[in-house]
Design a protein around this nucleic acid. Structure first.
Length: 142
RNA sequence: GGAGUUGACCGGGUAGCCGCUGUGCGUCAAGCAUGGAGGAAAGUCCGGGCUUCACAGGGCAAAGUGCCAGGUAAUACCUGGGAGGCGUGAGCCUACGGAAAGUGCCACAGAAAAGAUACCGCCAUGGCGACAUGGUAAGGGUGAAAUGGUGCGGUAAGAGCGCACCGCGUUGAUGGUAACAUCAAUGGCAGGGCAAACCCCACUUGAAGCAAGACCAAAUAGAGAUCCUAAGGCGUGGCCCGCGUUGGAUCUGGGUUGGUCGCAAGAGGUGAUUGGUGACAAUCAUCCCAGAUGAAUGGCUAUCCACGACAGAACCCGGCUUACAGGUCGACUCCUUUU
């Protein structure tokens, strides 16, 4: 996504955009995580992997980042913050997906700009993939 | 000015937009106001608080500490002092009780690594000589370490064999709270190192940890089977007592894994004054300064500069250790120059 477009989005009044990130659009319960793990579509790029389950009310986001993969807490926090921020700004497009973000060790070496770019492309890929499905009845192999 | 020692401190700033989270005010809605990571939050190496476990008594074992005095809630930390070592110096380093209670270990080299021994050498005797026997441990050589050091006497050659001084041990006196220091007398050469090897001596230690623990709500079956047993079982870190308690263990099947508290006003910070060499303590004034729980403390843009390191709270404190771009301040030492 080009820089200017994102900038113009930021300048929009909040009431029209709805770019907030309250508790209601996070995955909080163990059961919610399990349901995504049991049935999902997945896309990935450069160490970041998204798992998504469609057909749920509203978009929701959760993280699974293992300490084994990214050892330092500062790096884990950074990835989560960037993921949350990107999700917050793009949530309008994501409709009814429950998404889990996973990350591997090499992501810690990427800059904030690079991670933002990765997330932008991943959201689009995910929307494409879920659009192809006629319904959410198909069960993934994962 | 250069080189260095040491004690502290800071850890990008400003503005705009969009977010997250605690608290307060709100018609508990919209919203507004306000607070929101560190010096190490890290490693989890010590010490405490707090909580629970018959409130924990005795012995053994185990673990830890190890010059002295003080500080402290406490310590393995800190301060001051002593001793030894390093540095021209400011200063720095030290796990700094005991090796004539015992056991064990000391690679390679070397004659020999500890109560034993003699490779070369030196000396005496015998022999033409090669050499043999005896004496010796001064000199050489090996090694991280070799049986006190220097000098004189002594001797065939030598040797604490004798003497003087030093060193070592014992006793006394003086100074010091003490570690220890100084002085005097006296003993005789006992005598290698390692006690972060076992060990001995002195002192200390009950255990487990916030997933501790308390409460509320929901759900349920206070279920069934087998085995063992009252000189028993279970609990109390290991064992034996002691104490408390009264069936216990295993398997099958079922249910919950939500919320509130603990949880942030504290051995708290800052500033004075007083006491103390100091660590620190006392008194007064003043401030409230993160509190999440699938887990907040952020993202983007602009701009300035010295171009931003290591790194993220999870019950809380006090230390230690380790990591760290760059920068600021104080005190002191040495060298050089100028006056």
């Amino acid at each position: 996504m080009p820089r200017e477009e994102r900038g113009s989005q930021l300048n929009c009044p909040k009431s029209l955009n709805g770019n907030s990130f309250p508790r209601e659009i996070r995955l909080l319960k163990r059961a919610e995580f399990q349901s995504v793990f049991n049935q999902h579509q997945s896309v990935q790029a450069r160490g970041i992997r998204l798992l998504a389950r469609s057909g749920e009310p509203g978009p929701k986001l959760g993280f699974v980042i293992a300490k084994k993969q990214i050892r330092m807490a500062v790096q884990r926090n950074r990835i989560k913050r960037l993921g949350r921020e990107s999700f917050r700004l793009n949530q309008q497009k994501l409709g009814s997906l429950h998404i889990i973000i996973m990350a591997r060790g090499r992501v810690a070496q990427l800059s904030n700009q690079e991670i933002h770019t990765i997330f932008d492309t991943l959201w689009n890929k995910l929307i494409e993939k879920c659009k192809d499905l006629p319904s959410d009845s198909s069960i993934s192999t994962g």
